[in-house]
Design a protein around this nucleic acid. Structure first.
Lengths: 196, 196, 196, 196
DNA sequence: GATGAATGAGACTTCATTCAT
DNA sequence: TATGAATGAAGTCTCATTCAT
């Protein structure tokens, strides 16, 4: 029991890591098996296809995202939560400059697929982030919270992509600062929760 | 000669198109050959490796970008040029929602590569766009023109990625409107060209 | 003990059924284990190799054949016994049209094998049927009883194969009627049992 | 052209031969490639899947059957044609005793498949033989010509299977003689061709 | 005896690249 | 130049069998 679950976990984490670094297409089952220290043939006991492993990698990223937002939820002020999110992004600047945003880059790859049902999976994880972000803007009482969420998350995806393409972590820092300033500049909205 | 050049051209265009739609890894030489109506064996006369074909696809995207900015340069007002750029992006909303930004998605794929020298190629094309954009902001006399360029191009990459991941062209429209508003809100800076 | 024997039995029956339906090569140990509701790892306690399981399936078919002929032996007239055999075949027409004769189709598959000793096993089961049939013809006092047995059993194998290949149970009915007619047309031979 | 066609031919013949000897499931692409003296990777240039190769093997058997019946058609008397068919079968007795009827055994294997569309293919080849046979009986003016065809072809499949299962070519000879006698015993029917 | 997990050989298939005309 | 054909190195996946509790 323990062992089985542990190995599944190891495989999932290894898949998340290696796929982030090499991309889904260039990553072989053998790569993941090696990274997880599991014999190749045994991988299929836990995940029946490579696609299932990629889905698991995506799930792992969703889990990590959940841990991040879960921690931020402890902050009282929604604005502080959003600023905390931006700071977390910036703290990952070196990884972003080398490999991009794990979910965003995976979305790019998977969206090219016509078949397999995996092509919409990454979108779902991104929507989790959008939804959480929108919730913060709504709590701030700002108008068009989902538009603001698109803007913030879009900015993150854009700066990650540029940092990656230019191989320059400073892009993350500079744009992160700008986003912090933007969040600070937003007015305090009407906090009265929408009736119904 | 003419024929040969024409075939090169056809292959380049086909590569740009097919690679944009399927991604570099999932695209086979045969796919491109078929799209260009060139026999498989003949491809190698024009491009010695698949990487060269991908580079050619990138070059084609750079060419198309050049045509776009070239057209915009005819406008007198830099602010109008930038707004024209945004409008051009939005006009491509359906393609973006399906396949993302050609250069951005290619950058994501190629940046995962450790070897081959192709990993930095996409960054160069993106820099062309950044440079042109920065030039407009500078001409407007605004401070930190390269930061502004990062912001504008980043926003484009971000909204393309989100539109693609969510399969929703409306993301392009909404964020495009926001960018137009932002550009309009920017103050008229000091137009005195930097002495240098 | 009881339990163990019961499991052996379940496995044998499951093997007979699944191998008949899917063929020996396409049937996996896991298929049989699932059909017998036995954990995969446990199968090997009862049958050391897959070949042993296939042999067991063959044994099960032999057992069922024995039950059939055993019942027919209760009939006083050998001719009636043979007609009963044919009727039993025809009653299985739907199964035959879908999967063929269990023993015959298994013989076809196993006979292709050069090694393992299993290649002659199916022949032995078929010989059981031939021997019983020959005995009936002999009891009828007919000349060349083993030739007649070959004819009858061959007709059965042939009509099963055709019914299966054409996916048409009517083949069994039509040819069954013909065989009944043939059996009825055979003269009453000299019943004096062969001395020695 | 010549080369390509020749290799396709070689592969088809090799597939027919090896699949007959080893069975479709136990035959690997490598086996066929080796038998045809073609590099494994090259096989796929001619046949996109293993199933296509098996279908080609079946086609080869159909072709050989066509050559046989084509030759027999030169005989004036339909009864002689049928007797010629039986004699041809008997002449193959050693192959039949070792590997069975090529088409019949392939039908047995393929009929176990639920998917792929190959499961009905062998039935089609067998029907070719049935149709030709039925035509002869009809020309003889006999009633129920398709029932007679089922009987004759069924007898062939049955005796091939028994000869194979018992590893005894004599089964072919004995049953062949019986069939010849049966054909000779059939009355000369009404030769008036059916109006219509 | 019972069982989930482990293992490794081997099968099918794809594809970038090269070759022979 | 042009082209169908050739080649071989991977990669994904399956499965009989074995192992460790």
């Amino acid at each position: 029991m323990r062992t089985a679950t542990a190995k599944r976990q190891r495989l999932m984490e290894a898949a998340a890591r290696v796929v982030h670094q090499q991309g889904a297409e260039r990553t072989t089952i053998a790569d993941i098996a090696r990274a997880a220290d599991v014999p190749v043939g045994n991988v299929y006991y836990y995940y029946k296809t490579k696609d299932e492993l990629v889905a698991a990698a995506l799930g792992e990223h969703a889990r990590q995202l959940g841990m991040l937002t879960g921690g931020l939820d402890l902050l009282a002020d929604p604005r502080e939560r959003l600023k905390g999110l931006v700071k977390a992004w910036v703290s990952q600047r070196d990884v972003a400059a080398r490999y991009g945003c794990p979910t965003g880059t995976l979305a790019v790859e998977l969206d090219k697929r016509a078949e397999g049902g995996l092509d919409a999976e990454a979108g779902r994880v991104i929507r989790l982030l959008l939804d959480w972000t929108e919730r913060q803007f709504r709590e701030l009482g700002l108008p068009d919270p989902d538009g603001l969420a698109l803007t913030l998350v879009g900015a993150y995806q854009g700066m990650s992509l540029l940092a990656n393409a230019l191989r320059d972590p400073a892009v993350m820092t500079r744009q992160g600062d700008r986003l912090i300033g933007w969040l600070d500049s937003l007015p305090e909205g009407d906090r009265t929760p929408a009736a119904g």
